[in-house]
Simulated assay, not measured.
Amino acid sequence: MTEQSETLTNQPLRFSIPTRDARGRLVRLDEVLNEILAAHAYPPVIERTLAEALVLTALLGASLKEAGSQLTLQTQTEKGAIRLLVCDYKDGALRGYAQFDTATAAALPQDPTLLGIFGQGYLAITFDRMKPASEGGGRYQGIVPLEGETLADAAQNYFVQSEQIPTFIRVAVDHVDGRCVAGGLLVQHLPEGEEGRERLHVRLDHPEWAHIEIMSSTIAAAELADPALPLEEIVWRLFHEEKEVRIEQGDLLSKGCRCDPVHIRDVIAKFPAVDRVEMADDAGDIVVDCEFCSRRFPISLASFNN
C-alpha cells in the first residue's frame, strides 16, 4: 500500500489486512452531511448526534453490495432529548433525521452523556439484503441497549452481541470553516479469514485481532474529522507495518431523500375515495410531510378524479 494525495470525502474506503484476518471501512462526510443537516434547524447537540449516526449508517451500509439493499439505523427511547432518530443507506444514498424535545435538548450540558441525550433506550440496526435467503438475503434486525459513552460504542456492542464479530468503531464530529465534518472507522475480525464460518469470538486465542484492535485505537478524532487528510493516509498511519493492506474505494455517497410527488400520489391513490376525502384539508389538499427533507407535499384531492 502506498500513500495517495487524493482526499476521499463522501466516499467510503474499504480495506483488508489478509495476514491478520481483518477488514475495515473508513468514511468522512462533508458536503452530503451538510445537505442533510441544512433541512432542519437542529441545536448543536442534536446536530452532532445525528452526524455521528449518519457516519455509522454510511460505515455499515457500505458493506451492502447488492443493488436495492438497505441499512436502517434507528433509536427507540424514552424521556431523553432525542425521542426518535432514523437514518438509512440505500445504493449510496444516505438520509436521516431526529425528532427531539426542545426544552430537554436546551437543558443538556455542552458535552452530554449518551444517557442524557437519549434516556433509556435501544439501538436497532436492520439489514435488508436483496439476495436469496439461502445466500444470507432477506431482512435481519438486531436490537441492543443504548449503552456506552457514544452511539459508536452502542453500535460496537451490537456487533459483539448480535453478530458475534469482534469489532472496533470510532466516530468523530467537528466544525471546519463553518460546516460540519464527521468521519468514522470500523474494523472487524474475520475468523479463518472468511465470512460465513463459525464465529468463535468467545475463544481467548485471538492474537491477530488483539494486535489490530490496539493499532486501531491509536486513531485520533482530529484525524477522522480532518477534511484535508486523505483516508488512505489514515490507513497508512495505522497499518503501514503490516505485510499487506488492500484498499478499495466504495460508492460515492449522496443525499438520499426518496420523497417524490408522483410516488406519493400513487400511494394515496390506493386508498378508497372516502378515506382520501377524510385526509384532505379545508383547501382540498392531502398534505404529506417528509421528515427527512422537511418538505410538505400537497396533493390535490381533485387530481384523483382525472
Rank of each mutant, 00 (worst) to 15 (best):
163 E>L: 10
88 D>E: 07
34 N>S: 05
214 I>K: 13
9 T>N: 09
102 T>V: 14
81 A>M: 10
263 H>R: 11
303 S>H: 09
258 R>T: 15
240 H>M: 14
140 Y>P: 05
39 A>L: 14
299 I>P: 00
241 E>R: 12
197 R>Q: 15
276 R>E: 02
155 A>M: 12
261 P>S: 03
229 L>Q: 03
266 D>H: 09
206 H>Y: 11
83 R>D: 14
207 P>W: 12
207 P>S: 05
159 F>C: 04
31 E>G: 06
127 F>P: 02
273 A>D: 15
114 L>M: 06
247 I>Y: 13
71 L>G: 00
2 T>S: 14
252 L>N: 07
205 D>C: 04
95 R>F: 07
214 I>W: 12
287 V>K: 01
175 H>K: 12
100 F>L: 10
304 F>S: 07
238 L>Y: 03
125 I>C: 01
111 D>R: 10
241 E>S: 11
283 A>D: 08
226 D>C: 04
68 G>V: 06
185 L>K: 01
140 Y>Q: 03
302 A>R: 10
222 A>I: 06
160 V>W: 13
184 G>P: 04
45 V>I: 15
209 W>P: 02
254 S>H: 10
159 F>Y: 15
113 T>D: 02
51 A>G: 08
101 D>W: 05
85 L>N: 09
262 V>R: 15
69 S>I: 03
75 T>E: 05
20 R>Q: 06
236 W>T: 09
67 A>S: 13
285 D>T: 06
40 H>E: 06
92 G>P: 02
30 D>N: 15
44 P>Y: 03
282 D>Q: 07
288 V>P: 10
3 E>A: 15
110 Q>E: 13
125 I>G: 07
87 C>L: 09
293 C>N: 05
270 K>E: 15
303 S>Y: 10
17 I>D: 00
219 I>G: 06
127 F>Q: 08
96 G>D: 12
162 S>I: 14
169 I>G: 00
116 G>N: 13
83 R>E: 15
85 L>A: 10
225 A>K: 01
256 G>M: 11
264 I>D: 06
215 M>I: 07
109 P>H: 11
164 Q>V: 05
101 D>L: 09
261 P>R: 02
121 G>I: 01
85 L>E: 06
86 V>R: 09
96 G>A: 07
272 P>Y: 07
248 E>G: 14
112 P>R: 01
22 A>L: 07
180 C>S: 09
116 G>Y: 09
201 H>I: 12
104 T>M: 13
226 D>A: 00
43 P>N: 14
227 P>D: 01
89 Y>Q: 05
192 E>F: 09
46 I>N: 01
22 A>D: 01
191 P>Y: 06
46 I>H: 00
86 V>D: 13
